[in-house]
Design a protein around this nucleic acid. Structure first.
Lengths: 329, 329
DNA sequence: ATGAAAGCGCTAACAT
DNA sequence: ATGTTAGCGCTTTCAT
């Protein structure tokens, strides 16, 4: 009497008939919409078990106007940092009964918007967005009618919910640590549009140090490798480098090793993210850990409970994890 | 007149009224269910645009009995190999109009089954499953009533759709390459339950070589690191090692470097997966690349088009990528 | 404590 | 070429 694949799907009506009650009572039993006599409830549960009944989420979503799903749009779920963040989002959302749709926007604003619309049509209850955002984007996002919030936003912007990590502060911590080590010619690898660039620059300036060379790199392994090679070529004028992401840094490491440059001996490194990968590179990376779990939890809470957090809680702090690539023992 | 957030959702009926046609015509225009006069179609499309209408996917799913979603259950989407595979699944599925729900089962069979049920209740059109599977599992999976197939299955099993990579053959290729280099004491790091273990073992035996030491390791970075340390401790009796995954291998690399052992000089390495990470480790890993894109495409096709492939196409071949960790220049 | 029935937004068979 | 309508499976109001 259990469900046999290929059989017609068993619906709530089947359960009702089998238990000798009305459809409503099944609903009451399952969702607690009204009191049900213990004996009846037991009969219903028994029928559910026997028939192998599972509620139809589409029907439920249609009726309730909520799919109990949220969407997340990241630049690249293959980047360990985003992978970890998405996994936390999934974990947090699941614990609240929500499923998660992850989409890759490939660093494209156009794709991000397109996917947001796709998600909207799928009736998701909210979407977590990543990447740069300006006032125009806010309007476009709002036009979809779907609730949204920024995940890991880099700058707070009016009318936009979201949490992020204080990238500039993190970069300052990392750079300051490098300076503390006594390095004076500290390079930068990453995107200049990124807040980490500003953090690096201001820290050097305030310390009275001339900013070291600057290697523009997209957030890809190829980009990191190329920047690493460029860095190796000019290693005479550099004794340390701040790299904007662990993924980039591990590729930089490879380029430096290839050029037979000792890390941290000839060039010290501090990077950003605190991804699992950073702990197992050689040497282990000194890095600014982003509080991914917290980020995920806060973002989901904002999205689902419409919690507008106080402004000063929209930027979380990263924590410097000191390992060996900076020169610490 | 465009959608303003907070407004009542605009439905197909609104579009119909605005365009001065019946609900059906809107459907015909959008889905091509029946011929529509060009002028009418244009009016409808105009209304859609003006009102910012997006079809309600829940209603559609309820009506059609298909949510146009599939699920994927992996052990750990944070592992670069799974991350890449999931991304391909998403890409392939998207191109066919399907969205993807990714769930992490944490290497637990119980969780895998639980999630399969969750997905079933969400009316997904199919689920891609990973990990070990036996006849009992097949029954349990079938009992959910949802269509499923194995993604990256290690062994074909009766009554189960799916594609996988010939792990044993891949491990043989890698081990053979190590032997070709002249190494004679070749260790193994990975899980013994895995087909790669058999491939490693048989290749050594057939070559008349005594199997080197064997370090059991779960597929985690911690596991790889511990195994690497054990390997380093017994490096006198080892000149090469086959590691079952890139993620493991990169942690092994770290342990070896820490022990000041030269790779490939003192211990050569060949590993498995061909993840992006493997190219940018130091030294770059010689590894067996799994055809992730092909895997994803074939699995999705089987799931969606109910294509039962010929038996000999259920196991795809990996390709050995020769880089430096094996001793090649 | 339980039942009857309306209606969520959509598609498709049938009628015109 | 276009309109009318039933019904997908569910929740929930209102009766009983």
């Amino acid at each position: 009497m259990t469900a046999i694949p290929g059989n017609r799907k068993v619906t709530r009506k089947d359960v009702a008939r089998y238990a000798g009650v009305s459809d409503a009572v099944v609903s009451y039993t399952l969702n607690g919409g009204a009191p049900v006599a213990p004996a009846t409830a037991e009969r219903v549960r028994e029928a559910v078990r026997l028939l192998g009944y599972t509620p139809n989420a589409s029907a439920r979503a249609l009726k309730l106007g909520s799919s109990h799903m949220i969407g997340v749009i990241v630049p690249d779920s293959t980047n360990p940092f985003w992978a970890e963040l998405c996994r936390w989002v999934e974990t947090v959302a699941r614990s609240k009964g929500f499923a998660v749709l992850v989409l890759n926007a490939n660093d494209s604003k156009a794709i991000r918007l397109e996917y947001l619309q796709t998600l909207a049509s799928r009736q998701v209850d909210g979407v977590l967005l990543t990447g740069e955002i300006d006032a125009l984007d806010v309007d476009r996002f709002n036009a979809t009618g779907v609730r949204w919030a920024m995940l890991n936003q880099s700058t707070t912007i009016d009318g936009a919910l979201g949490v992020g990590v204080d990238l500039a502060a993190g970069a300052r911590d990392a750079t300051a640590h490098l300076i503390w080590h006594g390095y004076t010619r500290i390079a930068f690898i990453g995107e200049m549009a990124d807040a980490r660039y500003g953090g690096w620059l201001s820290t050097l300036t305030e310390a009275g140090l001339a900013p070291g060379p600057l290697f523009d790199a997209k957030f890809t392994r190829e980009g990191g490798y190329a920047a690493g090679q460029a860095l190796a070529a000019s290693h005479d004028s550099v004794d340390a480098v701040f790299v904007s992401s662990d993924m980039l840094a591990s590729a930089v490491l490879r380029a430096l090793h290839e050029a037979d440059l000792a890390v941290p001996g000839e060039i010290a490194i501090a990077s950003f993210d605190g991804s699992p990968e950073s702990e197992y590179s050689w040497p282990a990376l000194t890095t600014v850990r982003q509080p991914v779990q917290d980020l995920a939890a806060k973002a989901v809470a904002q999205l689902l409970h419409r919690e507008q957090p106080p402004e000063d809680e929209q930027l979380l702090a990263g924590t410097l994890i000191v390992r060996q690539s900076c020169g610490c023992p």
